[in-house]
Simulated scan of single mutants.
Amino acid sequence: MERQIDTDQLFHVLDEMAQTLSNEGHGSYLETLALAGDNLFQGSIMQQPLSDVAFKKMEEQFKKIDQMTMERETVRKAFQLAIIKGMKQAVQPHHAMTPDGIAIFMSYLLKRLLKDQLGVSVYDPAVGTGNMLTAMMNHTEGIERAIGADVDESLIRLAFVMSNLQQYELELYNMDSVKEEGIPTVDVIVSDLPNGIYTNDEVVESFNTKPSEGRMPAEYAIIESSLRALKPGGVMLFLIPNDMFTREHSEAFRTFMRKETITLGMLQLPDTMFKAERHGKSIWMLQKQGPDVSAPQQALFAELPSFTRAEAMTDMMAKINEWFDHIYN
């Protein structure tokens, strides 16, 4: 009888393979983690040259999971552990991963926003490793097509391998999603937006959200560009920094978003999730304007309790469910 591999077992196999390949000169840990995942997907050791010792170590890892099956969430969580380890070694400041609790909570919100809609297409313009997108797919029925873009080649490579092992056919693009066009129109946009400055000034020169002074925040640029790919009436779920609306020269951004979208809700995440208050984030739920779109009588605004406070979280979920049942629907 086939056995299912658990998260720790799969993590250790990926970790050992990645470390072995990195020691053999095949790249950094994050780069070789993608190679290790590709080996598992292909069912053989693809890298050459390898020393006899390294090849033997890799074969030993294959034997550990021989004839074992992998569930999608097991694959995602094992990769998550390995990617977090790799990111601690990486120098890129934008390398980060959406915490599991947030991704799963956003999946719940997306399910309520979709109202059991089927055949849904989703786009993440800053997909990173694909962890948040595949987490939402694993917990949300009805998603038929998923598209992701990211400027970082190493992260897109990880997203490709991880989605393959989860048996998803993600459409992944290694590109600057602000600059490039051609993404097909979609029903939903989701993203954990990077916090920083968009450096290609020429691309955003004509953007409506461009500040009157200073350079373009990356969040503004990604939101405005991704709106072009969203169908009228489509919904958006963004993880945003709490200071996005209170920065200097944010008037143009606020004006544009009021014209083009309806804010359905803003849920501030607990401060305990972040190293410092200035790093705090919120979940922003929006709907793009369209012929049959009307604003709810009252938007959903709340400060979420710590996800570890079960009773407080249960009370909050009851209030959120009530809003969806009586105001949004």
Rank of each mutant, 00 (worst) to 15 (best):
Q48C: 06
E213H: 14
M58I: 15
Q48N: 08
Y198T: 08
R145N: 07
N138G: 15
P232E: 12
P49C: 13
Q61R: 12
L264V: 05
M1D: 09
M46T: 15
L170G: 02
L269I: 00
G280K: 06
F207V: 02
K77P: 02
F11I: 08
Q47V: 13
I223R: 04
L170P: 01
S163D: 13
G280W: 01
N39L: 08
E260P: 07
P211A: 10
N131R: 08
T314L: 10
D325C: 00
H249M: 05
Q47N: 12
L300P: 02
L35I: 11
Q289P: 00
L30D: 08
V235N: 14
Q9S: 15
Q297T: 09
F105C: 05
P305C: 04
M17H: 08
M317C: 01
Y168K: 12
K111M: 10
E71G: 15
D152G: 02
L40D: 06
R76Q: 11
F324C: 04
T199I: 04
L165N: 06
I147A: 07
L304A: 04
A135G: 00
T199D: 08
L304P: 01
I156H: 03
L193F: 05
Q268G: 07
L110W: 09
G290R: 04
M17Q: 13
I183G: 02
Q287N: 05
R258Y: 11
Q4N: 12
E16L: 09
S107I: 03
P305K: 01
I104G: 01
L165E: 02
A90M: 04
K281H: 12
V53W: 10
F55A: 12
R247C: 06
L237S: 04
V13S: 05
R157K: 15
T314R: 13
F238G: 05
I283Q: 02
D8E: 15
A54K: 02
L113I: 01
S225A: 15
S191L: 02
A90G: 00
Y173N: 14
Y173V: 13
V75S: 07
I183D: 02
N131S: 05
N39I: 09
F301R: 06
T69M: 13
Q287G: 04
S177P: 07
N23K: 15
A135Y: 08
K231T: 07
P93D: 01
I197F: 05
S212C: 07
E144D: 09
S282P: 00
F274T: 13
K179V: 01
K319A: 14
P296T: 03
N242A: 04
F238I: 03
W284Q: 02
L264I: 11
Q117R: 15
L40Q: 06
F11G: 05
H326M: 05
S121W: 07
P211Q: 11
R76D: 13
M266P: 00
Y173M: 11
P305H: 03
E219V: 11
D38A: 09
R112T: 10
D52C: 00
T261V: 04
P296M: 06
K275M: 08
Q166P: 06
V235I: 11
K115Y: 09
P99I: 14
M68C: 08
L165Y: 05
I223S: 06
H95R: 01
L158G: 03
G25I: 02
S28M: 08
E260M: 01
L264P: 00
Y220E: 03
